[in-house]
């Protein structure tokens, strides 16, 4: 009972991560596409400035919870997906440092370099997370001690690469809708236009990838989640057409939050399906009943509080961001960058 509960809870943590960090990655990756000058860049990044770090903690908590509740799972995937994980970490480190330090350097040349790091650091995890999730659904070869045995290249199947494309499109779609929701005027219009292009592309990629996933390891419940995810994305696309970014964000948020539960539903009753072998089951990977009980108490006490204060943060920073009147803007930077 408790192991299944924790499987669901970790799916929820992943859902929180994709829902929240999804738009952070999107905003970071779209920085050069949506900005025309330094003021634009500041506005774009400011939409995630107060929240990105708290959003990232959903991933750290998912990792920590996996360690505590399913040590065998944690050990298997973190050592098995060694290279992709190392690249995701590289991305997260680059993004964190570049995002914060770009506002603290003087010269526009340094800032331009940090912005490149920020874009790379946002795009890299956006693609690789999809590759990893796809491999979870597809299953990986493992030995009797649950050590993954496939080579790095075996992780890069066409199906897994399509998974990477799907998450990259999801995060950029979600991110552009988020920007439309958080800005005004020209930036908002630009973000809506881009969302109008990314949205349909995502729907197509997602439909193929979700269908492919179901054909590999389907279940009725997973199919329901997949249909809901696609419907929400279609709703978001229609809302973008109507310039209703509030509803569009609701749609991309639902799609994002359904993606990890879909992957987890496909894997059920495994935490990592095997290829050739059945795989690592929820029961086999779980911690002792005592540890799970302790962690359940802590999670049930703390998680609602966390959701409460994070929600409050979004409420505090709910105001849309606008360009200041032209006279108040220092444009020297843009001249220096040579736009």
């Amino acid at each position: 009972m408790l192991p299944e509960f924790w499987f669901v809870l970790i799916a929820v943590l992943w859902a929180g991560f994709v829902l929240l960090e999804g738009f952070d990655f999107g905003v970071g990756a779209l920085l050069p596409v949506l900005s025309r000058d330094e003021t634009d860049r500041r506005l774009l990044l400011r939409t995630i400035g107060p929240v990105w770090d708290g959003n990232e903690v959903w991933l750290l908590t998912a990792g920590g919870a996996t360690f505590a509740a399913f040590p065998e799972w944690y050990a298997t995937i973190f050592s098995g997906f060694y290279v992709p994980l190392a690249l995701i970490l590289l991305g997260l480190i680059l993004r964190a440092v570049c995002l914060e330090y770009r506002h603290k350097v003087e010269s526009s040349r340094e800032r331009a370099w940090l912005d490149r790091g920020l874009v790379l650091g946002s795009a890299l995890p956006a693609v690789l997370l999809g590759v990893a999730l796809a491999n979870w659904v597809r299953g990986v070869p493992m030995d009797a001690g649950y050590n993954m045995t496939g080579s790095l290249w075996s992780l890069l199947s066409p199906y897994a690469l399509l998974g990477g494309v799907t998450t990259a499109l999801l995060f950029t779609f979600h991110g552009s809708v988020f920007i439309a929701l958080r800005t005004t005027d020209e930036l908002r219009a630009r973000a809506l236009r881009l969302a109008g292009q990314l949205g349909p592309a995502f729907v197509v990629a997602a439909a193929i990838w979700l269908g492919w996933s179901l054909s590999l390891r389907g279940s009725a419940f997973a199919a329901v989640l997949a249909v809901l995810a696609v419907l929400a994305a279609v709703g978001a696309v229609l809302a973008v057409r109507a310039s209703r970014e509030g509803f569009a964000f609701l749609g991309t948020a639902v799609t994002s939050a359904l993606l990890p539960p879909f992957v987890f539903a496909c894997m059920w009753p495994f935490v990592l399906p095997g290829r050739g072998t059945p795989g690592l089951t929820i029961e086999a990977a779980a911690s002792s009943p005592y540890t799970l009980k302790i962690m359940t108490v802590v999670a049930l006490l703390v998680t609602p509080v966390v959701i409460g204060y994070q929600a409050w943060t979004y409420w505090v920073f709910r105001q849309r961001l606008s360009r200041p009147p032209v006279s108040a803007v220092d444009l020297r930077d843009d001249v220096a960058v040579g736009r």
Partner: peptide, 26 residues
């Protein structure tokens, strides 16, 4: 050791990381 060692790590993320990161932004 995950059954023992993972617990304080998960608690650290849940109790401390969320707190410091969210309130830094605020």
């Amino acid at each position: 050791v995950g059954d023992v060692f993972g617990a304080p790590l998960a608690m650290e993320a849940l109790v401390a990381f969320f707190l410091e990161s969210t309130f830094l932004g605020l």
